[in-house]
Computed example of a mutant assay.
Amino acid sequence: MPLPALLPAPLSATASSAVTEAYARLAEVFPGLRAEVLADDESAPDGVGWVGAHELAAGGGALDTFLAWDNAQVLRDYGQQARPDVVASFGLHRYAWPACLLVTVPWFLHRRVPRIPVEDVAFQRASGHLTLRVREFACLPDDPAAALPGARVVADEAALRAEVLASVAEHLGPVLDGFGPRMRRGKRALWGMATDEVVEGLWYIAHLLGEERRAMAELEALLPGTTKPYVGTAGFRELTGPDGESLPTRDRASCCLFYTLRPEDTCVTCPRTCDADRVRKLTPAP
């Protein structure tokens, strides 16, 4: 049976067990993504299609191969060649969106924040399969997981939010360094993209969990606008639909550059999309 948010997950005596139930719940509501926690003696997969996060961070041949998939997808779906920086932006999004969920979903569901350095994560994008090794995690004092090996107890919710941001930054920082030279963006723009991945990934999954409003409040507290290197706030605001209904939206801190392929079809949270178009896109067809 699915675990309600914030209830302690069943435990065994390893750090990895602190997050496995959160990842199982993620797979239930979003079957296109599977996060598998490796045992201490289990090797990370390295077969066809697999790439280690540390390889993406290195910015070499493995990143070239990773981005070749995005380039081929653009040619297949849109019949045109995208600029190299656009391809790199798509590739970063398709890695960073699921990678951020490795941190934010256990935090949102069980108030546990794993540390996931790039050396401990691998990704198979075709199957939506991530593997990771969890050696350490942060939790609150009243969490039963505080007794597990690798647990690091923090004082309160504010301290745990700081752990979320630190864990994502520890993982994404090297990845941004790997992608950065191909994207023609400075540090601030890259961290704007990271901010968007943190917010929009959890926002989407929380909607599937039936907890969209709680996620919006949690993300606003997580990103109040003063948490460098992240850029800006969670950016949520409310629009009014044609029948007076509330339509949540947000303003992205960055642009994904999709408009370079389809100028008339910008994303609903794109800074280029006006409110009238957002209302139209967010309102179900009659």
Rank of each mutant, 00 (worst) to 15 (best):
E42M: 08
A44K: 11
G47S: 11
G47I: 11
G47C: 09
G49E: 03
W50M: 05
V51I: 13
G52K: 11
A53F: 06
H54G: 10
E55A: 14
A57N: 10
A57K: 10
A57H: 09
G59Y: 05
G61W: 12
L63I: 09
D64Q: 11
T65D: 15
F66N: 01
L67D: 10
L67K: 10
L67W: 12
A68M: 09
W69D: 15
W69C: 13
D70E: 15
N71Y: 02
A72Q: 10
A72W: 08
A72G: 02
Q73E: 14
Q73I: 10
Q73F: 13
V74I: 15
L75C: 04
R76T: 15
G79A: 05
Q81W: 09
Q81Y: 10
A82V: 06
D85M: 11
D85C: 12
D85L: 12
A88W: 11
A88C: 13
S89N: 15
S89Y: 10
F90Y: 13
F90H: 12
G91H: 07
G91R: 06
G91E: 03
L92P: 08
L92I: 07
H93C: 13
R94T: 07
Y95T: 00
A96V: 08
W97T: 09
P98L: 06
A99V: 12
C100D: 01
C100A: 12
L101P: 03
L102N: 00
V103S: 03
V103R: 01
T104D: 06
P106L: 00
W107E: 07
W107M: 01
F108H: 03
F108K: 01
L109M: 12
H110V: 04
H110T: 09
H110E: 13
R111S: 06
R111D: 04
V113K: 01
P114C: 07
P114M: 02
P114F: 11
I116F: 07
P117F: 00
P117A: 00
V118Q: 04
E119C: 02
V121D: 12
V121P: 05
A122F: 01
F123D: 03
F123G: 03
Q124Y: 06
Q124G: 02
R125C: 04
R125Q: 09
R125P: 03
A126F: 06
A126I: 12
S127F: 13
H129T: 15
H129V: 14
L130A: 01
L132M: 14
R135E: 15
R135S: 14
E136P: 00
F137R: 12
A138M: 00
C139M: 04
L140W: 04
P141F: 06
D143F: 01
D143I: 06
A145R: 05
A146P: 07
L148N: 13
L148S: 08
P149L: 12
P149E: 13
P149F: 14
G150H: 09
G150L: 07
G150A: 01
V153Y: 08
V153M: 10
V154K: 02
V154H: 01
V154A: 04
V154W: 03
A155C: 03
A155N: 07
D156E: 09
E157S: 13
E157P: 08
E157Y: 05
A158M: 13
L160Q: 01
L160G: 03
L160A: 05
L160Y: 02
R161Q: 15
E163Y: 04
V164K: 00
L165G: 02
L165F: 04
L165R: 15
S167K: 01
A169T: 12
H171M: 15
H171D: 10
L172H: 13
G173L: 07
V175W: 02
D177C: 06
G180V: 12
R182Q: 05
